[in-house]
Amino acid sequence: MQILLAQPRGFCAGVVRAIDIVEKALDRYQAPVYVRHEIVHNRHVVDRLRGKGAVFVEDLSEIPAGSVTIFSAHGVARSVQEEAKLRQLPTLDATCPLVTKVHVQGRRYAKGGRDLVLVGHAGHAEVVGTMGQIDAPIHLVSTVEDVEGLPIDPDKPIAYITQTTLSVDDTRSIIAALHARFSDVEGPDVSEICYATQNRQTAVRALARTSDLLIVVGARNSSNSSRLREIGDEMGVPSYLVDDGDGVDPAWLEGVSTVGLTAGASAPDELVQSVIAALGRIRPVEVRTLDGVEEKVEFSLPPELRHPVATPESVE
Score class of each variant (00 low, 15 high):
Thr95Ile: 04
Tyr34Lys: 02
Asp20Leu: 05
Ile3Cys: 07
Glu270Thr: 09
Val119Gln: 00
Val15Tyr: 04
Arg36Gln: 09
Gln2Ser: 03
Asn221Pro: 09
Gly255Val: 03
Asp244Phe: 03
Gly292Ile: 05
Val168Met: 15
Pro312Cys: 10
Thr171Met: 14
Leu26Cys: 04
Gly106Cys: 06
Thr100Pro: 07
Gln81Ile: 11
Gly245Asn: 09
Ala263Leu: 11
Ala54Trp: 12
Val40His: 09
Leu86His: 15
Pro188Val: 11
Thr130Asn: 03
Gln81Tyr: 15
Ile39Met: 05
Ser226Glu: 15
Glu38Leu: 12
Asp249Cys: 00
Ala310Pro: 00
Thr143Val: 03
Thr164Phe: 04
Ile215Cys: 01
Arg36Lys: 14
Ser266Gly: 09
Lys52Ile: 00
Glu23Arg: 15
Pro302Thr: 10
Gly187Ile: 06
Val248Trp: 14
Thr91Leu: 01
Leu60His: 14
Asp155Val: 11
Ile174Arg: 06
Thr95Asn: 08
Asp170Met: 07
Glu145Phe: 04
Asp244Asn: 14
His124Gly: 08
Ser314Gly: 01
Val242Ala: 01
Ile138Thr: 05
Leu178Tyr: 07
Thr311Ile: 02
Leu213Asn: 02
Ile3Trp: 01
Asp27Arg: 12
Ala25Met: 06
Val256Gly: 03
Asn224Trp: 13
Val144Phe: 13
Val248Gln: 05
Ala13Met: 06
Leu290Met: 15
Val128Lys: 15
Gly132Lys: 01
Asp93His: 10
Ser191Phe: 03
Asp249Ser: 02
Leu271His: 03
Ile215Pro: 09
Arg306Gly: 03
His41Ile: 03
Ile215Glu: 10
Glu304Pro: 04
Ile134Val: 06
Ala203Ile: 02
Asp169Phe: 08
Asp155Lys: 12
Val315Gly: 02
Leu166Cys: 08
Arg108Cys: 06
Ile174Ser: 07
Arg200Cys: 11
Gly236Ser: 06
Leu92Cys: 07
Ala263Lys: 11
Val217Gln: 13
Ile282Asn: 07
Pro64Tyr: 09
Ala94Leu: 11
Pro157Cys: 04
Ala18Ile: 04
Cys96Ala: 11
Asp244Leu: 02
Leu241Asp: 12
Phe182His: 05
Ser257Pro: 00
Leu213Asp: 01
Ile193Glu: 06
Gly123Phe: 08
Leu49Met: 04
Ala110Met: 07
Ala122Gly: 01
Val76Gly: 10
Ser300Arg: 13
Ile161Arg: 09
Val57Ile: 15
Phe182Ile: 02
Pro157Arg: 12
Asp243Pro: 00
Lys85Ser: 10
Gly255Lys: 09
Gly264Ile: 00
Lys101Gly: 02
Thr95Gln: 12
Ser67Ala: 15
Cys12Ser: 10
Pro284Gly: 02
Phe182Met: 02
Arg306Asp: 06
Val68Glu: 08
Arg78Trp: 05
Ala25Glu: 07
Thr258Trp: 00
Ala94Tyr: 05
Gly247Asn: 14
Asp184Gly: 00
Ala176Trp: 00
Ala206Gln: 13
Ile70Gly: 11
Gln7Arg: 14
His44Tyr: 15
Leu92His: 02
Ser314Pro: 00
Met131Trp: 13
Ile276Pro: 04
Gly247Ser: 04
Ser211Arg: 11
Asn42Thr: 04
Cys194Arg: 08
Tyr109Phe: 15
His139Arg: 07
Arg229Ser: 09
Leu228Ser: 13
Thr210Phe: 00
Leu92Phe: 13
Val248Ser: 10
Gly129Arg: 03
